Simulated assay, not measured.
Amino acid sequence: MHPALLASDYPLLNLFWTIAEIFLWVLWFMLLFRVIGDIFTDDTLGGGTKAAWTIFVIIVPFLGIFVYLIARGRGMGERSLKRAQEQEEQFRAYVRESAGTSSHADELTRLAELKNRGDLTEEEYQRAKAKLLS
């Protein structure tokens, strides 16, 4: 008779299973934090609903996560995409504002050049100057 072979008889197999378990735990915690983050960043949920989902996810984590993913999983991606687009637009607006805006002195110089070349009348120049300085 052969004695039963155990996984502990193969150290490399033990290492593989340990790595697989660590990977699954890390994956689980990433999913847990993603769901909790989605609960708190969703503006369509009220405070009571957010509290209920959070309690459900914390008290019964496996069932809570799976129920949340089934009930609201599709919206998670849409909300994440919407937040990313809003952040991108805010960044682009900031860059446009920072890089594209010239000083009042530059604008006044440009207006004076236009007036000197005859492209602007004295009245148009004064109106543009007043608008710029206000």
Rank of each mutant, 00 (worst) to 15 (best):
H2S: 11
H2L: 10
P3V: 11
A4H: 06
A4W: 05
L5S: 11
L5Q: 10
D9S: 08
P11E: 06
L13H: 15
T18K: 08
T18S: 13
I19T: 02
A20T: 01
I22K: 06
F23T: 02
W25R: 12
M30R: 15
L31A: 12
L32A: 07
L32P: 01
F33I: 14
R34V: 00
V35D: 00
I39T: 00
F40N: 12
F40D: 02
T41M: 09
D43Y: 02
D43I: 05
L45D: 01
K50V: 09
A52R: 15
W53R: 02
F56K: 05
V60Y: 02
G64Y: 01
Y68T: 00
Y68W: 09
L69K: 03
L69V: 08
I70C: 04
G75Q: 11
M76K: 00
M76Y: 00
E78D: 11
E78I: 06
L81H: 10
A84G: 02
Q85W: 13
E89I: 13
E89F: 08
E89S: 06
F91V: 07
V95W: 05
R96E: 15
R96N: 10
S98T: 14
S98P: 04
G100S: 13
T101G: 03
S103E: 09
D106E: 11
L108S: 05
R110A: 10
L111Q: 02
L111C: 09
A112M: 14
E113H: 09
N116D: 15
G118P: 01
E122T: 09
E123M: 01
E124A: 11
Q126L: 12
R127F: 03
A128I: 00
L132I: 01
